[in-house]
């Protein structure tokens, strides 16, 4: 009897304690990719502006969209969608807009990223990082030519069953289209059938689907070939994976992630402050040194670490060039969804 009373009492005390937790002057709720911003930087922002920062993470653009659609819009201030997802979020009316006068650092945006097709005039988003998506190969397991997408889609026998691909429909099907030499989001039925046949035939060679695991499977040696983002591959290499990042001759994907201001942001003012903070060269460089991609802010060069400056992942050869992921029409997207489901059957 006494015990149960004690349990209830401590429950009440704990709950009361939860309600009375220390509150900072303001709040900021960030929806971000996993392992993409150093905790120190968030702490620095929190200290400079007396803001309590909370962050949730996702592992694909689509997961972020799904969760915003399922009722989370209105509870986050900023998210970090990739280029094509910025376009989709704008189409869906899920982004708020700002004017350049709201951010003192707006002019720090590197000129080539100041006006982009997915967000003309940069009304909703600012550059965060850009990089590429292709794959990395464990050089202890395979020493042949790696600069071809056939290592993923039609691998030699020794690599079969030792491949991880990103759990990202858009990137995987875009890469497959590049390999086949067909346009992305093609509505040509013959080409779509070939796309379907390609991934179906490739699937038995793949060991797993995963984005958040992409680095770990390479570091742990679970797979020999891993579809991966450039900076994430650099981090895997830094953690001791004997890997080399490929720039396949058929082409590869380039992308830019952007800090976007979400509609109905509960703390719009702090969101703007945060975006402005991230356009500060020193802070942008801190992200780059952590995530190991490339920032889209001028004047960051002197803050970059040598590792980032000389990273083979961030210094692609002059050719081939990469291409951005395109946004498909609903008709084509439905075929893509069908292909994807068949693939995971």
């Amino acid at each position: 009897m006494k015990n149960i009373r004690r349990i209830f009492l401590s429950a009440a005390v704990l709950c009361a304690f939860g309600a009375a937790q220390a509150q900072a002057a303001g709040k900021l709720s960030v929806y971000h990719w996993f392992e993409y911003i150093p905790q120190e930087l968030l702490d620095k922002f929190a200290a400079e502006h007396d803001v309590e920062v909370t962050m949730d993470t996702y592992d694909s653009n689509e997961a972020m969209l799904a969760s915003l659609k399922a009722g989370k819009l209105g509870s986050y201030d900023v998210a970090v969608p990739g280029d094509y997802m910025v376009k989709i979020l704008i189409e869906e009316g899920m982004l708020d807009s700002f004017t350049r006068s709201e951010m003192s650092n707006f002019d720090n945006i590197a000129p080539e990223w100041a006006d982009v097709s997915f967000d003309p005039g940069r009304k909703h988003s600012i550059p965060y990082q850009w990089g590429s998506t292709s794959f990395s190969v464990n050089r202890d397991h395979y020493d042949g030519d790696i600069n071809t997408l056939s290592l993923v889609f039609d691998p030699p026998a020794e690599l079969s069953g030792k491949i991880n691909v990103l759990d990202s429909q858009a990137e995987l099907l875009a890469l497959a289209s590049i390999y086949l030499g067909i346009p992305q989001c093609t509505s040509d039925r013959e080409e779509l059938r070939r796309l379907n046949a390609l991934v179906q035939a490739a699937k038995p060679h793949w060991a797993s689907f995963g984005s958040d695991v992409a680095k770990d499977v390479l570091v742990s040696g679970d797979v020999s070939v891993g579809m991966i983002w450039s900076g994430f591959s650099a981090k895997a290499r830094e953690e001791g994976a004997p890997i080399q990042y490929a720039f396949p001759r058929e082409g590869y994907i380039v992308w830019m992630d952007n800090v976007a201001l979400l509609k109905d942001a509960p703390n719009r003012e702090n969101a703007i402050k945060f975006m402005n903070f991230l356009l500060e060269p020193e802070n942008a460089a801190a992200v780059t040194n952590f995530a190991q991609y490339t920032d889209g802010v001028s004047g960051t060069g002197s803050y970059h670490s040598d590792a980032v400056r000389n990273s083979p992942e961030s210094n692609p050869p002059a050719s081939p060039t990469g291409s951005f992921v395109e946004v498909c029409s609903q008709e084509v997207q439905e075929v893509y969804d069908e292909i994807w489901t068949q693939l995971r059957q």
Binding site: S60, E62, A63, L65, A66, S67, K69, A70, N164, D167, S168, Q169, A170, W206, A207, S208, F209, G210, D337, W340, T341, R344, Q345
Partner: peptide
Amino acid sequence: GGAKKFMIGSLIEEQFKGNIGN
């Protein structure tokens, strides 16, 4: 299982939190 093949649970999850928003 490496999320390679859908099971009922992951098939349903994919419709709400993953690549296919159906």
